[in-house]
Nucleic acid binder design. Structure first.
Lengths: 342, 342
DNA sequence: TCCTAAAATACAAACGTTTTAATTATTGCT
DNA sequence: AGCAATAATTAAAACGTTTGTATTTTAGGA
């Protein structure tokens, strides 16, 4: 039993395929009664549009490219749950639409650019979602120039408006730092993603601003940047173990690096709550199960990634980019006192 | 500049599109010299096959459906990294082929079945990869019956041969249990996925067999089954805290639940290595950073999932299912002594 | 009733490919 | 040199849509 096509309907309804096509898409030039009849039949025989025909004819792909850096394959290090959750949110947003998500896993910035160029040139997708944005992101420039619909997860410093979804990283970092200062810490370390990423910059800005506002001097040693793995978190603590000013607090950009910090504490005999404490940004509340549970700023990543999916579709359908921008503010979850006990 | 098509080549080469098509696919009825010329031109103008045309004509989709249970959306609980890594491995295997992976996130078994039925009936994909297999898996029966190519991650108890990739769960469970028995434990708890899953059954079998071989009686209380979240691991420990026979060892099916166990230890004042210890199956070595690091059985999930991708393609291309079966044996990583110190 | 304008539908081409059947070119043989 | 057999190519149809243009139907006057 071959699949029902538009032709099947045409025969049953004694209409031409053209009219059926128009009826199905609710075209005004088709009589209401006819539309009704067509829809009825379509329903009856379980007709579903063949996407290949549609695509071939229209030249549109009805697919959204998600170009994402994968958790460094082969490194065997946990880098958090971003990947999974972002994907989930996007697919959730696309569900029920004609659009499909096509995942393009990439290794680094250069290959992501290459992949994007490829997608644009070959029209492999109608729109692109990217993450890992940089202050001066050439991929964004490229897509803007080509006038190709895209949404970014994270911002950049472009002048031309574009569609993005982002967390208030700078403000969060500022508040986290200010809070710890209020609680009596003065040697605060901040653990951030690689320097070239925009949100690393934002986090560092927030951190520095808070210290500045409090009139406290910091040392460059206390700003760590690197892959957000447990390994890196651990290494950071170890590297600062014999520092003149012993750090008493760590603010981590994700849970994975915070886990590494805790691991270092354990290994070096640094007592949590007495010698030092850790905070983190929360992807999904796994840090509630750390030893001990730590204070985090919770970022509803399914929500932001759902916005990514919605935005890219609306962008593809022509909505102006400046209407498709969203910032979310992570929410403080205090699981510890975070003052040092004597 | 419109995309280069087969027609473009035909004009440049002064050939018919049919010949070009055949030349491109290395058909024997085309003269070698012609093939060479066509390939040359194709290369020159950067021709790439239009998949929509191909699909429309051949009726094949060149896409592989990956039907996976997503980390329970909205539950805000970490269930491990399976999802991400499996996806990664599959996409890695598909890279360079004509095939694309289409992800179908589902909530539970029933909706996965529904989705599969849909894919088969509408020919939405050429093959399907599923996970979360059950001993008597109706999805497998269905696809076998429809003679639709598929590969499973995890086994079932079907008689008809089918293609699968799986870990030696039973053996691993046996060995883990036997090892702990050797080390002096007798009250061993095993934490497993929900009962209906095949690998829960396998794990329980291995566990029971090891105890039996050692002549040790266990209690049903020591076999926990549930969602493999930190929360569940934690709850399990708490529920057994006042048990007549205090558990001294936990064998967890993944790292997430092991984290929960450690969290419970911390909260209840159970001292690791003195009162009890934890082992786990290792998705990616995040447990190396637990407090303390724990002994695990490492399962190279990128490797197994890469096999999934390879197998489904070969299955689609017609290789018999019984040639496409792989079992992998997880590898012990001892990060602790795991004997109880007095 | 007839004519005109508007509404509704039909027709046909096109998107890029593969493939069957038909045609032309080439070879081998007598 | 001619003929048959085979090799190489072309022509055309088809996959399921959408859409511009042509055609038919309907409705609204006079």
């Amino acid at each position: 039993m071959a699949r029902a096509t538009i032709k099947t309907i045409a025969q049953k309804a004694d209409l031409s395929v053209g009219t059926v096509s128009r009826a199905l898409k609710d075209c005004s030039s088709v009589k209401d009664k006819t539309k009704e009849r067509v829809r009825q039949i379509a329903e009856e025989i379980g007709y579903v549009r063949n996407l290949d025909g549609l695509r071939l004819r229209t030249g549109r792909t009805y697919s959204v490219a998600v170009v994402m850096t994968t958790p460094t394959t082969g490194s065997h290090e946990w880098e958090g749950v971003e990947y999974t959750n972002i994907l989930n949110g996007i697919m959730g947003a696309l569900r029920g639409t004609l659009y499909r998500a096509a995942i393009y896993p990439v290794d680094d910035f250069d290959s992501s650019f290459q992949e994007i160029r490829n997608i644009v040139e070959q029209r492999l997708a109608d729109g692109i979602i990217i993450s890992g944005t940089r202050p001066d992101d050439t991929r964004i420039s490229y897509m803007l120039e080509k006038d190709f619909p895209f949404v970014t997860y994270g911002m950049s410093e472009h002048f031309t408006p574009y569609s993005y979804v982002d967390a208030h990283s700078q403000q969060m970092s500022y508040e986290a730092t200010a809070r710890l200062l209020r609680l009596g810490h003065s040697n605060i370390v901040t653990i951030n993603p690689p320097d070239e990423l925009m949100y690393s910059k934002q986090r560092q800005r927030g951190y520095l601003r808070a210290l500045e506002d409090a009139g406290i001097k910091t040392t460059a040693d206390f700003i760590a940047t690197g892959p957000l793995t447990p390994e890196f978190g651990k290494a950071t603590v170890k590297a600062l173990y014999n520092h003149n000013n012993k750090p008493t607090a760590y603010i981590c950009a994700n849970e994975a690096s915070a886990l590494g910090v805790l691991s270092a504490f354990h290994e070096l005999g640094i007592e949590f709550g007495k010698d030092a404490i850790v905070n983190a940004t929360d992807d999904i509340n796994v840090s509630a199960y750390f030893t001990p549970p730590i204070t985090t700023y919770y970022l509803p990543i399914e929500e932001t990634s759902k916005a990514l999916g919605e935005f890219i579709i609306r962008r593809i359908e022509g909505e102006p980019a400046q209407d498709l921008q969203r910032m979310v503010m992570p929410q403080l979850i205090e699981r510890q006192d975070d003052r040092l006990k004597p």
